[in-house]
Measured scan of single mutants.
Amino acid sequence: MATGGRRGAAAAPLLVAVAALLLGAAGHLYPGEVCPGMDIRNNLTRLHELENCSVIEGHLQILLMFKTRPEDFRDLSFPKLIMITDYLLLFRVYGLESLKDLFPNLTVIRGSRLFFNYALVIFEMVHLKELGLYNLMNITRGSVRIEKNNELCYLATIDWSRILDSVEDNYIVLNKDDNEECGDICPGTAKGKTNCPATVINGQFVERCWTHSHCQKVCPTICKSHGCTAEGLCCHSECLGNCSQPDDPTKCVACRNFYLDGRCVETCPPPYYHFQDWRCVNFSFCQDLHHKCKNSRRQGCHQYVIHNNKCIPECPSGYTMNSSNLLCTPCLGPCPKVCHLLEGEKTIDSVTSAQELRGCTVINGSLIINIRGGNNLAAELEANLGLIEEISGYLKIRRSYALVSLSFFRKLRLIRGETLEIGNYSFYALDNQNLRQLWDWSKHNLTITQGKLFFHYNPKLCLSEIHKMEEVSGTKGRQERNDIALKTNGDQASCENELLKFSYIRTSFDKI
């Protein structure tokens, strides 16, 4: 039985969820670079991206490699990797027998973001014989899940209580170790020597080791999670996991709180800001991140802002960003909400898709409305799209047979046209069989910064309504002859009103 693990408890099935942008060198404390989270699957090609990484700022997932063999891993080693800020997950990587050479110096898994409450997941690794993470000293947050690894031993010899604050939620089941077939031998045991430290858990006094050649490092209890030197002297209180010299914040392997210019500090002093819960960055760093993602459509890219001495992905609820200094300031009234469309555009074809934009005031991208039916549609669209004030790209209304009016965009005031449909149009209306009105132009103002209007096959939309939009939106004169079809717009509506004058002759039985 794995020490510190839980057996036999019912657990939810383990679901495996399925960018080499360097964020800056980590400095003297770390020998390499800070790398983003990685999802490495199918083959070993991307694994080489770990070569210079000291910190993975995010998670590391290595999974679904069915053609790899043990010899493929023999020359692979990433000794610079010290810390993973989120979680480490391995799933069905064939041929991998140990992690001792792959990650010989991995010391800390912070667990800032977890995989279903777990910071370390080893699942269905069919050839893994031992973990071998002999320098792993601290899992700051989260638990361990090690399950269905039929060859995995050296679990009962690990004292997880020396690595985690609590072992109650560890789930370590259905491994070879369960069948008591392992016969784990710690260093020196074969020669009758006791080389590794022994600890007591559940009444068992057991030597602690990761492999037959690597003991588990056990520091004096007084050192807590700070770690200790090879001689057993406690590291500085700002260290986490390990250090090369005692009581020196510049000799830590990793930091308990924050890293700044080669030393570990309790908090980031001005003019620095907390970033990702582990390091200090200056304003320029946060500003660069903001600008890199301002026009990016890459998933996970955030326009970072500053709030409460932190550089964070977005302002919290009730705050909006001051564009001059990136500071989050309290909103006066309802907060603006910028919604970034991942692929640059979004099609609204149902109430469900409209709900995804609920509360958005600025759309960074283009909207395509293609709704053919739905219950209580006008009210639903207004509830979900009615706060949109600005669209950076274009607005396209296409084959939306259920629409009679666009009044559900009740606050839309600006279409920038930074991206144009077919390279020309910022407003595009095609084949809307029941569209009769755009907006009530006596109450609604709309500016279209650039781009043209396109109207074709809107049989109940009168040309007068379209011409009014040209005047109000500032697009009059931009359109070419064929942009607004004269014969297919309003051709099934009563669009022309003329005053009919009647004269009559009164007659009676005795007068003409």
Rank of each mutant, 00 (worst) to 15 (best):
N295Y: 09
S166L: 10
L89V: 00
F205N: 13
K191S: 11
H274V: 11
C243N: 00
T221A: 12
T329H: 03
H302P: 10
L90V: 09
C328T: 04
E168A: 15
Y273D: 01
L136Y: 00
N117V: 06
R162N: 15
G142V: 02
N117F: 11
T199S: 06
D75C: 08
T140I: 07
C301S: 12
F275M: 14
C331W: 15
V144I: 15
V305I: 07
E51V: 05
E33M: 13
T157P: 10
S323E: 12
N308A: 09
G192E: 02
H28M: 03
L133M: 06
K294M: 13
P31K: 10
C215N: 05
G142E: 00
V144F: 02
F115R: 07
M83Y: 06
N202V: 04
W278C: 02
C228R: 02
L47S: 15
L96H: 01
C280A: 00
N257E: 03
L29A: 14
Y30A: 15
S284G: 05
D177G: 14
N42F: 15
C215T: 08
P271Q: 07
N105L: 02
E314H: 02
D178R: 08
W210I: 12
K129S: 10
G142C: 15
N257Y: 09
V305Q: 06
E57S: 09
P269I: 15
I139C: 04
P104N: 00
Y259L: 06
N195W: 10
E314A: 12
V108L: 10
R162T: 08
R162I: 11
C280S: 00
D86F: 00
L88V: 12
L114M: 09
F103K: 00
N295V: 03
Y304Q: 04
W278T: 08
H214Q: 15
C243I: 00
N135C: 08
W210S: 04
R74D: 06
A190Y: 15
C280H: 00
N150G: 12
L326S: 11
K310Q: 07
D248K: 13
G333S: 13
N322Y: 07
R279T: 12
V281I: 11
T85Q: 14
C335I: 06
E130H: 10
C264V: 00
G132F: 00
R298T: 12
P220S: 03
C315H: 01
F285R: 02
E207W: 15
T229S: 11
L90P: 00
R110L: 09
K176T: 14
C286I: 07
P270H: 11
G227W: 02
T199W: 09
E33A: 03
M38N: 06
L99W: 01
H290V: 12
V55Y: 09
I82N: 03
K100I: 05
N170P: 06
N43S: 06
P269W: 08
N135I: 00
N295K: 06
F205A: 04
P197H: 06
H302L: 03
I62P: 00
G32D: 13
N309Q: 14
E147K: 00
L128H: 01
T85H: 02
E57V: 07
T329N: 12
T320N: 10
A156F: 09
L164R: 03
S317K: 13
C209S: 02
H48A: 03
S161T: 14
G37H: 04
G188Q: 11
H236V: 01
C311V: 13
N322S: 14
D177H: 10
I139S: 01
R208F: 15
P336D: 12
R263E: 06
C153S: 03
P249R: 11
D247S: 05
S225R: 08
T320G: 14
E33G: 11
I306S: 02
Y134F: 05
M137Q: 09
F116S: 10
C234K: 02
W210L: 05
K294T: 14
T199K: 09
T68A: 07
H28Y: 15
C223M: 01
A230S: 08
D169R: 08
L29W: 12
Q276K: 09
H302M: 11
I122C: 09
P336C: 02
F258Q: 04
L89T: 13
I222T: 12
R298G: 06
P104W: 00
Q245H: 09
N308G: 08
M137C: 06
S54N: 11
S317L: 07
G111Q: 00
Y304L: 07
E57A: 11
F78Q: 02
E314M: 05
L81H: 00
N295L: 10
E238V: 03
P269S: 04
R162G: 04
P70E: 06
N175M: 03
G183W: 06
W278I: 15
Y87P: 04
D288P: 02
G300S: 09
L152M: 15
P246F: 13
S284L: 06
G188W: 15
G32F: 09
I56R: 15
T140M: 05
S296E: 13
G183V: 10
D86Q: 14
N149A: 02
M83S: 10
A190C: 04
R162Y: 12
C252M: 03
F205P: 06
N170A: 07
G203H: 07
G203F: 11
P270L: 10
I185D: 06
L44W: 10
L106Q: 00
D248Q: 08
C35K: 01
T194C: 07
M38G: 11
C293I: 08
